[in-house]
């Protein structure tokens, strides 16, 4: 089956997650990094989790009295997908070597 290319917002999120693929990140932190609104970010997180590109877990809040927070990180499959679609690509084109005639 042909898979659709991810949307620009998804690419932004994947790029942000790819910066620290092993670290768990929170929704608000991802919002600030990517500039996405929560109404855009959370549906994307839900889709990525559904496709097993993300791993999620409840982590205790650092501040006392606050509820545990849902945190996300890329799975191996997700990291490969992110690397394929969101890794920064070098824009430098290979230059042709000019050879002088001997």
């Amino acid at each position: 089956m042909r898979t659709r290319a991810p949307s620009a917002a998804t690419v932004k999120l994947l790029a942000a997650l790819l910066q620290q693929p092993q670290a768990y990140r929170y929704g608000y932190e991802l919002m600030k990094t990517t500039g996405l609104e929560s109404g855009t970010l959370y549906p994307i997180l839900a889709r990525l989790l559904e496709r097993n590109f993300l791993q999620a877990e409840w982590r205790p809040a650092r501040e006392e009295g606050r509820p545990p927070r849902h945190a996300y990180r890329l799975t191996n499959t997700g990291a490969a997908y992110a690397a394929e679609h969101a890794a920064p690509k070098s824009r430098a084109r290979p230059t042709k070597q000019k050879t002088r005639p001997a």
Binding site: Y26, G27, Y28, M31, E37, S38, G39, T40, L41, Y42, P43, L45, A46, A56, A61, R66, P67, P68, R69, H70
Partner: peptide
């Protein structure tokens, strides 16, 4: 429901004034 709980918990971690309303409206739209 897991996403509803996740967003509600995250809302408590949002401190900046304007961000709280924007975050809440995003939750509502989702």
């Amino acid at each position: 429901s897991v996403w509803a709980n996740a967003m509600a918990a995250e809302f408590e971690a949002v401190h900046a004034g304007g961000d709280r309303l924007r975050f809440a409206l995003g939750c509502l739209s989702f």
